[in-house]
Design a protein around this nucleic acid. Structure first.
Lengths: 190, 190, 190, 190
DNA sequence: CATGAATGAGCGTTCATTCAT
DNA sequence: TATGAATGAACGCTCATTCAT
């Protein structure tokens, strides 16, 4: 008995990400996708019940990957500022390295396939990132700001930083990271 | 001889904005749009040659409105910090009051209907906003940062602020504006 | 009280002929036609009840013109062969000079607007041309062929001659007329 | 796995020919065609990419058939006149037996779907038919006329003959063939 | 008589999904 | 499991004609 080929499933998801990156979520056509994966359109339906199921599955997988990627890092740095700096660098690099995934989530949120319930799963996966901020407030380093606000400021500036890098107004190097982190620090430091 | 009803053109654009806000740019169907405006689908083609023409016309009109909205403001404030604060409040309020327009532009940029040439028309209208930053640098108030970076930081935080307000994590009041401006100021002040 | 402007009616018919010549009978669009004439689409309906009425009216007018054009000629030539030659030259020249009209009739016959009843009017207008052939048979010059056959042969060769001229394989000059007439004469002479 | 049914493709082409014969090329509507074939309109697009592709495919098939039909014939007749007579009979019969195809080609040439490049493919297939005329001129039987003119005369009269047959003015029998051939012979013989 | 706006009916085409093997 | 054919439902758009002035 042949089982579903998980390589094939991965290939489908990979191509979906690529197509969304190239042509937007509305550019995902089941037959075009099948052709790029090298299978028949009807075979897609062996792996995903509907197109919506496919899109949502891609979103769910990305959420898992993002959550996993955000956990690691920091830990052994000594000072809090070093930890915050490490987190900042990680955020910027992550935003750059996962262009396609971030782009997908961006588009998914505004698409007819968006499902709020699934989106909430992400929130939980993000809980732990906040513990760092609590430590910063407790040690008197950070302003007394809500976790959401602190994260929002960092995320907002990270997004814009990456936009400026992609537009050529900034370069992805140490000096840019230093510059932007100094802004973050000034913004958040008590 | 029946005259073209300019209210009808406005109504079409208004409904288009609403539909994009509700269902994304891919959710704009000429027949659905016509039904919401209360006209026949073919009448849409009296006012706009194609669907693309419609979308681009909406974008063009928004660009004009944004440019117009950015001109007024400030001027009479005394200190530079007051001018910057006024600009910040204006940015947040504008982002909130023009939700649909901003959402439309966001989606348009990633849609098949996007036309770079039209987008460039906007750039010129935005030149003047940068003069404020020059004044801030000259007076020694602002860090020596590129105009684009300063604007990106303010815009990034403004977007996130509005997101938090809409999510209920913040309220649109004076204390929120004071809080967020203090962050902006700390981030940008020399 | 203003009456229907017959210049306008002529202009409509003229433009219809031109459009059919340029783009075929399926290329006749009431609004495009109106624009070319310089009037409003609805004004067309002052002069012609429907599109079919327009097309049929053009056909009917052409039939009248053809019938009129075929009457004149000959008469004073002495020998029958000279009369036949005159008729032949007239046929070729007519075919060339009335390209648009002939093209229209050709297309009309195969179009959804064709009406056999109107077409029969032509037959009557063509009756007189046959008298010449009767004279030819009576005088022993022509083979004993049916009028329709004689006319068909001349018309068939005239059409092909014009086609060859337009394709550049022949030139419209005396020698071509002499050559082709000699073929006609040999084909029909007893 | 369902296999593509080549009878279905044939049926589509057959019905297209019929519809063009009945209502002209402008009368070919994809939905009407589908209904007559007994399939869904969208199934048409499994076999032909667009309406234009369908029309051009029909034309291309006809050109192949015509070229194939012109090759066989003659060869074994003894005298040149017998060969010419055989060719004439073949032309008339072919014109009658392929009414729909000839009508289609006639209309296609004036339609928006016409493609000169495809038409040129035919020209080559027609080269061989001319060799007969060269033989006729060499042997002193035919007048010294250009190949195109000879063929044009025969084709023009063949067309008109068939028109007269269809109109009931002639009957498709030996005596008609003899009569018309005698006209052809007199027209072309030196 | 003249007009520009308005429209219903219909067209060619696309595409997610199901069918039949 | 895997497939290519088949399709219904929709979409963007056109156009002859009518409406309202």
């Amino acid at each position: 008995m042949k089982l579903k080929d998980s390589n094939k499933e991965n290939a489908i998801i990979e191509q979906t990400l690529d197509i969304v990156y190239e042509t937007g979520i509305a550019g995902v056509k089941m037959s075009k996708l099948a052709k790029r994966v090298g299978i028949s359109p009807s075979t897609l339906y062996v792996y995903f019940e509907t197109k919506e199921d496919l899109i949502v599955s891609v979103a769910r997988r990305i959420l898992k990957n993002i959550a996993a990627g955000l956990e690691s890092v920091l830990a052994e740095s000594t000072s809090f500022e070093n930890k915050l700096r490490a987190k900042w660098i990680h955020m910027v690099q992550f935003t750059i390295n996962h262009e396609k995934e971030i782009n997908f989530m961006d588009q998914w949120k505004r698409s007819p396939y968006f499902d709020k319930n699934i989106f909430k799963e992400m929130k939980d996966g993000f809980k732990m990132k906040m513990m760092l901020f609590q430590e910063g407030r407790d040690s008197g380093y950070l302003k007394d700001l809500d976790d959401n606000i602190i994260h929002a400021i960092m995320a907002g500036i990270a997004n814009q930083t990456v936009t400026l890098i992609k537009a050529g107004h900034l370069q992805m190097n140490q000096s840019t990271l230093d510059l932007t982190f100094s802004i973050i620090r000034d913004a958040l430091k008590r």
